[in-house]
Simulated scan of single mutants.
Amino acid sequence: MARSVSAADVARRAGVSGQTVSRVANGSARVDPDTRARVEAAMAELGYRPHRAARALRTGRTRTIGVLVRTLTSVGNARMLEAVVAAGAARDHAVLVLTLGDDTVDALSAAYAALADQGVDGVIALNEATPTVRAAAAPAFPLVAVDAAPTEGIAVIASDHAGGAASAVAHLRSSGHPIVHHLAGPAGSYAADQREHGWRSAQEGAVLPDPVRGDWTSASGFAVGRELAADPAVGAVFAANDQMALGLLRALREAERPDVAVIGFDDVADAAEFQPPLTTVAQDFDALGREAVALLLTRVEGGETPARTVIPTRLVIRRSA
């Protein structure tokens, strides 16, 4: 019978110490990227696979990340979860997803208990789950919140929602629209609040109309978008996400208002196929996922992390504006 490949074999092949192999195998952030790549290449060449159960007994870690989310019906949450799963797999971590039944502290406490029972090493809270997370007592495990205001004891990572919104409005104004209307997201959402802030800041000094507010869905974009489509003073609209922008575009088309410029936010996979193709602000979901996982694993290992990390956005210009 062939001898199984050991960590020492990997260390010899990669030209590193056994401790470095252990750190790479355990997903430690305290390894130089070039060294990590060399060790991972040696593992692949030799067919080395650490024994997960034995490693958990040795390290006290299950290499499982918990993810808390209110809903997966929104494109942002689904894209963010996909990015976290991919980033976790790249670090040899499984992902356990738990949806909150409601936004009460009691529901969150029950979710924390369930995740603790599953032995997760730490938790990432996505988007709409973060207001409840901020209102509750911190759990015993490390926690990273995606899209939240600064919170004591919690590492926060967010897209530059305000900056992205401001760039969208600046583009519309530079195209000759003195006032840009806003199809906003739901009240209380951090992302919606920040995008509204960017919309306002880019028009500082102007008398602005009140935003009309949807719930992130294309149906709500259509329903409230009819109000905008019926107003002849509306010449440009910044929509807080692409799904609502899609509903708005339908409302404008039915009202025979092709003159209205529209910009969305997210750059969903189908944005280029909208009619017209949608100008939008792209979030880097892959970077958000990688950084969220990296922040969490650093905290799991007892390392220091920034209290807040912001990921840039970028304006993608198409034909809608």
Results as ranks from 00 to 15, higher is better:
Ala2Val: 04
Ser4Cys: 02
Ser6Glu: 02
Ala11Ile: 09
Arg12Lys: 11
Ala14Glu: 01
Ala25Trp: 09
Ser28Tyr: 06
Ser28Glu: 00
Ala29Gln: 10
Ala29Pro: 12
Arg30Pro: 03
Asp32Leu: 12
Asp34Gly: 15
Ala37Ser: 13
Val39Ser: 05
Val39His: 04
Glu45Gln: 15
Gly47Pro: 10
Tyr48Trp: 12
Arg49Glu: 11
Arg49Leu: 09
Ala54Cys: 07
Thr59Glu: 06
Val69Tyr: 03
Arg70Cys: 06
Thr73Gln: 14
Ser74Cys: 00
Gly76Glu: 04
Arg79Leu: 14
Met80Phe: 06
Ala87Phe: 05
Ala89Asp: 14
Ala90Lys: 12
Ala94Val: 08
Val95Pro: 03
Thr99Gly: 10
Gly101Gln: 13
Asp102Ala: 06
Ala111Asp: 06
Ala113Trp: 01
Ala116Gln: 14
Gly119Thr: 09
Asp121Ile: 07
Gly122Ser: 08
Leu126Glu: 00
Ala129Arg: 12
Thr132Pro: 09
Thr132Ser: 11
Ala138Thr: 02
Ala140Gly: 13
Val146Leu: 14
Gly153Asn: 01
Ala155Thr: 00
Val156Lys: 00
Ala158Met: 09
Ser159Thr: 13
Asp160Phe: 08
His161Asn: 15
Ala162Gly: 10
Val169Asn: 06
Val169Ala: 04
Leu172Tyr: 08
Arg173Lys: 13
His177Gly: 02
His177Ala: 12
Pro178Arg: 15
Val180Thr: 04
Pro186Ala: 12
Ser189Thr: 01
Tyr190Gly: 03
Arg195Ile: 08
Trp199Pro: 06
Pro209Arg: 14
Pro211Lys: 07
Arg213Asn: 00
Gly214Tyr: 08
Asp215Leu: 09
Trp216Asn: 02
Thr217Cys: 01
Gly221Phe: 10
Gly221Pro: 12
Phe222Val: 00
Val224Thr: 04
Gly225Pro: 06
Ala229Cys: 08
Pro232Gln: 01
Ala236Cys: 01
Asn241His: 09
Asp242Gln: 05
Gly247Cys: 07
Leu249Trp: 07
Leu252Asp: 01
Pro258Val: 07
Asp259Gln: 13
Asp259Pro: 03
Val260Leu: 11
Ala271Glu: 01
Ala272Tyr: 01
Gln275Phe: 11
Gln283Asn: 14
Gln283Ala: 08
Asp286His: 12
Ala287Asp: 12
Arg290Tyr: 03
Glu291Val: 12
Leu295Asn: 02
Leu295Cys: 07
Val300Glu: 01
Gly302Pro: 11
Gly302Ala: 05
Leu315Gly: 02
Arg318Asn: 10
